[in-house]
Design a binder for these strands. Sequence first.
DNA 1: GGGTATTTGTCCGTATGTATT
DNA 2: AAATACATACGGACAAATACC
Lengths: 272, 272
Amino acid sequence: MPEIRYRQIAEDLRKKIESGEIDHDTQLPTEMELREQYDASRNTVRDAIKLLMTRGLVETRPGQGTFVVTKISPYVTVLTGEADASAGQGDIYMQEVTASRRRPTTTDPRVEIQKSVGTVADALGLDKGTTVVSRHQQRFIDGTPWSLQTSFYPMTLVVRGADRLIQAPDIPEGVVAYLRNEIGLAQVGYRDKVTVRAPDANETAFFRLPDDGRVAVFEVFRTAFDQDGHPFRLTVSIYPTDRNQFTINVGKVPDELRHQQESAEIQSGHPG
Amino acid sequence: MPEIRYRQIAEDLRKKIESGEIDHDTQLPTEMELREQYDASRNTVRDAIKLLMTRGLVETRPGQGTFVVTKISPYVTVLTGEADASAGQGDIYMQEVTASRRRPTTTDPRVEIQKSVGTVADALGLDKGTTVVSRHQQRFIDGTPWSLQTSFYPMTLVVRGADRLIQAPDIPEGVVAYLRNEIGLAQVGYRDKVTVRAPDANETAFFRLPDDGRVAVFEVFRTAFDQDGHPFRLTVSIYPTDRNQFTINVGKVPDELRHQQESAEIQSGHPG
DNA sequence: GGGTATTTGTCCGTATGTATT
DNA sequence: AAATACATACGGACAAATACC
């Protein structure tokens, strides 16, 4: 154990939190009170609190105090669906297994024509700088920001006749079904790559994350393949790690009986 | 943009880093130099550096300086293998697609008899407190800590004849193959749940992570099901998020041609 | 709405400790 | 042993956000 003051204080507070002595969503003593309790300076107490913050145990609210964070029941996304997913609701082809009545809503896609950068060109098997169509959406669950999603398609698909990719703000039957019906392009499989990184400024704002990099985000790259084994779409989805989890089913698995924990809590909800 | 001094300084440094003006693995100006450059106090400069640290852009080394972090090429783990995985090498049943010559090594399992806690009992469909066998392993790639893995089996499997679960330190043909041959229990599928959380003290030490909670860990729960649709194993695997990534293949996907980036770097290697 | 007390956020200066070269 | 650079700890001052009257 370190003899360093602010770590000792943080350790002591951590124990009190995890033992339940200080309950969820309740307030810690103020910095002045802690300063007296531990006979340390206010800055040292603040260093201890900062440590607990990066560890995700507490949060501070200016003008109010320091509070033990409330765990929110996570959104569950199943990454293994049908390979030929004709899931039907526009670009939302990832199936969601969530608690009862949770329902995702989605903004209309923002459609752009772009030069493909390295990552996109790489995944789609194109040369860097090739023109691609991007369709960007914000997704919410019960009104709270859930995910940012951008799909990239080679411009050649539009040339081949799928012109609604760049026209229609929304494609009700789903892009996969549309491409199959319109130009005979079928999705036979996809590959997901899941990584974690710090959020950028846009993501921090949209998800209302703390503006230091404490809460990381999942970055899911989904590359879809057609009947010839060629990639024809890259979808990049971003999810905050503090309220999301993924499920992957392989082989024969029973349906998930979702024993919903009673302690289901309202979305944390900084009053701000 | 905020008029807050330490955020301005952090922003300015971030731009210089991301524009490449300060290259990877090179040193930033010292705190004293930054103090003069920005005409701020040393503490304010340090606040800026702390912000860049939680965002994972720089790292500090006492006695040396502040350095731009070097991204390390990630270990890639494929979560979708064969449902009846008889993968052959003991408890390592997750297939690894990694750069050339990377090879995992594994410690002998530490075998324990435990009372199942909530999570384990839940996943295995047992009552809380039921006896289970746990087999814990540390896994390395090229000698660097890669993953911590613990598998839980109901004690009833041992009663049914699979006594090497509690005896043998290692089961060369793999636990799945052993259970099939010994007691006719076949794995027909599994379900993975992937979450991210802050590391605990053990994990921080084993992975040699910074001792604040900056670097989170993946927590992968794999529940394996037998031919009757009953869960018979829970495996919990921990991976640091800063050097791991997961791949999920669904449907028909081409083999991955791993265009290894030339910039492959040695493991970051805090000299500590 | 306004004013005030409370609480955290920012910024400064200084001193001393610890790790590395 | 000495110099350098970051880490810890203290104290003080003022700003900003919030709650309450």
